[in-house]
């Protein structure tokens, strides 16, 4: 009996002193690849230069860009034979900020089945079901909040800059080219009778994409800034002024101009 107890004790002591197994990592099999989306901002096919009064829009306003911040969501890849891959395994809404370089590259978490994809699409802004007030509590997304009484949720776009009004030689005025939920007024600026969702779907023209097993395919989504102000509507800052958050007519114009702002291009190796 005593020997048994001694054996038990030695065994127990041995277990207690054993340091445990080494760590191992398992590698899972893949027949899929990844995509990396880079966000690029250009004016007239050249990289955007900020804080410099060097651009002129279609309406003839000389202007400069200070910063651009926007959301895109529901990024979808369309494969041959009608297959679709929606990016929402980790993040379904991506924030881009010209002041924050980390946001210019999105290494997408989702595993994309390998193959060819003819086109992509995404929502510019956030759809009504997803655009909920207070869902972001930390900067920088938090600072895109769209006031509750103006519709709530978050800005789709903040394109901030300055323009030279007609007749001015050097005194610029700031403009906040903002897109978000619009309001319908019975009599401005009180008595809001309804709200308008101003998000829209973008299908950027560009070449097809190939996703290769175990590799990452990199491509650019380019914002051609001048297109916000020209087609189908010529947008004149002198007409609309610097503040359009409460001006649904201006925002509707911007929304319609947005259709050809974005293009897709593959990254050259």
């Amino acid at each position: 009996m005593e020997r048994l107890i001694k054996l038990l004790f030695i065994a127990a002591a041995g277990i207690a002193l054993l340091a445990g197994c080494k760590k191992e990592t398992k590698i899972t099999e893949v027949s899929s690849g990844k995509i990396i989306i880079c966000f690029d901002h250009r004016v007239d096919d050249l990289p955007m230069v900020r804080d410099s009064l060097m651009y002129t829009n279609e309406a003839g306003n000389p202007y400069m860009i200070n910063e651009i911040q926007y959301f895109i969501s529901d990024f979808t890849l369309y494969g041959a034979g009608g297959s679709q891959v929606v990016i929402d395994d980790w993040k379904d809404i991506h924030y881009v900020d010209t002041d924050i370089p980390e946001t210019w590259t999105w290494e997408v978490y989702d595993e994309i089945p390998q193959g060819w994809y003819d086109s992509v699409s995404f929502t510019f802004g956030i759809t009504a079901e997803k655009n909920k007030s207070f869902m972001y509590v930390n900067p920088p997304e938090r600072d895109m909040f769209w006031p509750e009484y103006l519709g709530g949720g978050y800005h789709y776009l903040k394109l901030n800059g300055k323009w030279l009004p007609a007749g001015q030689a050097y005194q610029t005025r700031p403009f906040d080219f903002h897109l978000g939920i619009g309001q319908i007024y019975f009599s401005y600026p009180d008595s809001i009778t309804g709200y308008v969702q101003n998000y829209f779907t973008v299908c950027p023209p560009g070449s097809a994409l190939q996703v290769i097993n175990g590799q990452s395919t990199k491509f650019n989504i380019v914002m051609n800034i001048e297109n916000w102000f020209k087609e189908p509507h010529i947008y004149d800052h002198d007409q609309w002024g610097g503040y359009i958050m409460q001006n649904q007519d201006a925002m509707a114009l911007a929304r319609e101009n947005g259709h050809n702002v974005f293009t897709l291009e593959l990254c050259k190796k």
Partner: peptide
């Protein structure tokens, strides 16, 4: 001395967003 048999770890990019996951034994 404490260990957990299986734990999922995310690999992250520069922004802190995950780019993939793997299972670690005896973390």
């Amino acid at each position: 001395y404490g260990t957990i048999a299986e734990a999922v770890q995310y690999t992250t990019d520069g922004q802190g967003d995950p780019t993939g996951q793997e299972v670690i034994a005896n973390d």
